[in-house]
Design a protein around this nucleic acid. Sequence first.
RNA 1: GCUCCCGUAGCUUAACGGAUAGAGUACAUGGCUUCGAACCAUGUGGUAGGGGUUCAAUUCCUCUCGGGAGCACCA
Length: 567
Amino acid sequence: MIKDKLLTNLRTALEKIRVEEKEVSLEYPSNPDYGDFATSIALKLAKTLKKNPLQIAEDIKKNFPKDDLVEKVEVIKPGFINFWINSNYFLDFARKTTEGTFDFPEYHLGKNKKLMIEFAHPNTHKLFHIGHLRNISIGESLVRIFEAVGNKVIRSNYQGDVGLHIAKTLWSMKNQTSEKELDEIKKKSIHERMQFLGKAYSNGQVAYETDKKAKKQIIEINGMIYKKQGDVIPLWKETVKWSFEYFDEIYKRLYTKFDRLYPESEFADKGLKICKQAEKKGILKKSEGALVFEGEQYGLDTRVFINSLGYPTYEGKEVALAEKEFSEFGELDKAIHVVTPEQKSFFKVTFKVEELLDKKKFKNKQFHLAYEWVKLKEGKMSSRTGNVVEAEWLVDKTKEKILEKFKLDKDPAEIIAIAAVKYSFLKQDVFSQITFDINESISLDGNSGPYILYTFVRTQSVLKKVDKIKDTLTSIKRLIEVEEKHLLVTLNSFPEIVYEAAKNLSPNLIANYLYDLAQKYNLFYQKHKILEAEEEIRNFRLLLTNATGQVIKNGLYLLGIKTVNKM
RNA sequence: GCUCCCGUAGCUUAACGGAUAGAGUACAUGGCUUCGAACCAUGUGGUAGGGGUUCAAUUCCUCUCGGGAGCACCA
């Protein structure tokens, strides 16, 4: 990589002036007038060396190794050093790119490290909403990014199939729905069945709050589910199956899959066992009939692991889940939980308990990626009040909009709709809340998924018109235009962007990069003829077009987005 | 009361502590007999407020204001 070579040269220069500096930074200047790369190292050294930064910069320049990589070095104002790279090096990268080979830097975990990404985690008996959609978009993208930088990644999904909300749903089905009605519902489509469960849930919720007898029965049902004994179990099992069927369909539609689906109900017994061991070790303590972790000594909250009825809470089950996740696939080097920020306290506490139970296995390995909510204009989504926007509804709506606006077949429209929806979530920082508005949130032009797809289609459309791209160029020095140069430089930074995205758990870096690349290609495309240019230039521009297409395709793949060839 | 996250053009947003804060959208104007106009160009408009650290602050520290989340038997 160009950057690595330049860094090596920079270090050599620093050694010559007898400076030891571990952190040598090399940036892409915001303004092309400042070269292809820039470093502010002289400014940073000024203090420790007690010298004028301009003087240091000049010294570095004087001692900079001379080879054909760097064409020009310039020292500017307070002490920046700017480098101009021989364009032929960028050309080499573009060539490699067209062969589909990308040298991504290895992620700092190291080669072949094993990583688990736990995401999606919908609750059964509930609708899959746009918050889950953001979650899946982030999770799936992170999986692909980490794979790209050389890690082995395991996808897991912890699905809540126990809890009061389910007891409420089942209670309503048992008490407010006739046998005949139930038989009919069982024959309906999976989506209708899920709608029905949603309604049963809100009915059960009302009963729970207004009817004391119902409340008592619901709590009993909840206990039955825990023990997996009692007459609701067949109904519970069947409805859980509906949910899994429904989720499965959605996962497929969103191009995602999982190595393991962990149902919460399987971790109750093991959770109890582990918590009791933890009590013996003095990690958990009895308090008011419950088994709790007293977090104060670690600056954490106190949380309940086993409640006074003897059931494991969410915390109690989590330690069993962790145990399973960290043993089932051999040793894990990292586990990333993609979960909303309300769970921060919960994760801090369970991570601490796990660490106290088995330091070697868990310490510094668990990580909670607290991505933010998708809110509605009216406020937080709540399945309790029925105020939810379903993920599939959004995709369908977007698809409709696309079909209205453009003449298209359904298959490409589906791909474009998924692209539009995923991109709109992924282009944003994971830590900021999204206020969702159907009219504004999913855009089809400007900084959007379709814009990038359109650019890709453009590149393919040009390439289709040539039989074979002859690459006879030996040097591009004299014939390069500004737009071409910018495109080349941008193409070159792709692997590095992917590396940064992995390091910072930020798919949005890739999204924004692709947008920038697409913009640069479109500008180039607007200003210069490709096919009608004189042969050598034509070949060069075809190479650029080819490389751009490859990078877009690969970048979109990392975002979990498919490409189309026509739109 | 304590802890954490967020605050950037009208709206949605970008920027390893770096140079002139970059886009989209909306609005106004211009560009298809030319490789795909879901495109491109030009223009208007912005770091919530005060203090501090630094050669350099949207970024770090501190206070104020505003929004969100969490802090014992829900998941």
